[in-house]
């Protein structure tokens, strides 16, 4: 077994230099692209994530090696096996990532990555602390069962993560057409991080955007609908611990108060925002409401201004 390096470790100096470069660009183009408190939170989450990764890494590797015993094929370390492993691992990432947005248990870990209202290279480093606990590693097990050696899979997974770093930026508009057609790009991933109803639950790709096009989850970025980044219910502050654990806390409270076993399971494994009585927003209800609003049209060009306070009799008319 070759001694493969951890690509993420090797990339850390480049991450630091590129964040620095992007900050300097922001200084001259648009200072609001970075916010020091947000940056500190993102980077601390990234730092904590690497520590959590080291702690869980041994167990994940042991599990992978155990599964690998039952492999269907013996796969060696020839270069083309690396290439095939990279593509299949990226498909596994797509499935993982889609589940991470559609199943609250996985979302509770992944939401960390989306909880910044900024979209810059420091956002890329805003990574989960609870990935092991939420069982995200299960999605890679099929690769070991096929026969890809664990060391190879973890190596290509690291390369995948390093690739995803540079796409977290507003500095790059669009890449050349052929590249946008095949690869995940800043433009495609801005859509993924946006809370605009049109963009919710779209573009789950890691490296190859073709998975989204293949499985019907692709949405192109539009110049007339600029992305607004963050989550539907944005965090009230920059607290690192809140960012790392808030959705787990939400699950705990909901499950505790749930009226039935069905509700308990729904709160854990239903889509984010699921509730037994449907009183909360899911991405479906948000999209539907947005759609209805679009269809009601643009008949809202009425004066929107009053800094004085009208009395109750001036309460707004209700639309039908």
């Amino acid at each position: 077994m070759p001694d493969l390096p951890n690509p993420v470790d090797l990339a850390v100096p480049a991450f630091v230099l590129l964040v620095l470069a992007e900050m300097i660009v922001a200084r001259f183009r648009d200072r609001s692209r970075y916010c020091p408190r947000d940056t500190l939170t993102s980077l601390m989450l990234g730092f904590g994530s690497t520590i959590a990764g080291v702690l869980a890494g041994g167990m994940v590797f042991a599990l992978a090696s155990w599964v690998h015993q039952f492999r269907l094929f013996d796969i060696g370390y020839a270069w083309y096996w690396f290439a095939i492993a990279f593509v299949l691992d990226d498909l596994a990432y797509y499935v993982f990532h889609r589940s991470a947005h559609r199943v609250r248990w996985f979302w509770a870990s992944h939401v960390i990555h989306h909880s910044s209202q900024h979209y810059n290279l420091s956002t890329a480093l805003r990574q989960t602390w609870t990935g092991f606990f939420s069982l995200g590693f299960l999605f890679r097990l099929p690769l070991f069962l096929i026969g890809f050696p664990p060391a190879m899979v973890f190596f290509v997974a690291g390369v995948n993560l390093v690739y995803q770093f540079w796409i977290h930026t507003e500095v790059i508009g669009r890449m050349p057409r052929w590249f946008e057609a095949v690869m995940n790009t800043p433009s495609h991933h801005r859509v993924h991080h946006a809370t605009n109803a049109r963009y919710l639950d779209r573009n789950y790709a890691g490296v190859f955007i073709v998975w989204d096009k293949l499985f019907g989850t692709f949405e192109a970025e539009r110049d007339d609908d600029r992305p607004r980044y963050g989550i539907v219910h944005n965090l009230p502050d920059f607290n690192v611990l809140r960012a790392a654990f808030h959705e787990w806390w939400g699950i705990t409270k909901d499950v505790w108060r749930a009226p039935s076993l069905y509700a308990r399971l729904g709160y854990m494994f239903g889509p984010p925002g699921w509730s037994p009585d449907g009183s909360r927003d899911t991405s479906e209800t948000i999209k539907a409401r947005w759609q209805a609003r679009q269809e009601r049209g643009q008949h809202w060009k009425k004066p929107i201004s009053s800094s004085s306070v009208p009395g109750p009799e001036a309460a707004p008319p209700r639309a039908a």
């Binding site: 951890n6 470790d9 850390v12 630091v16 964040v19 620095l20 900050m23 300097i24 922001a26 200084r27 200072r31 609001s32 692209r33 970075y34 916010c35 020091p36 408190r37 947000d38 940056t39 500190l40 980077l43 601390m44 990234g46 730092f47 690497t50 520590i51 990764g53 080291v54 420091s122």
Partner: peptide, 30 residues
């Protein structure tokens, strides 16, 4: 990841946040 890398990363985190602050990025919205 070894402990040197961890210590270096933590130092880089604090340095970058400090630079963001020194460059007066962000600002208070109104």
């Amino acid at each position: 990841m070894n402990w040197w890398l961890a210590a270096g990363s933590l130092a880089a985190v604090l340095m970058l946040a400090g630079i963001a602050w020194a460059l007066r990025l962000g600002g208070e919205n109104r």
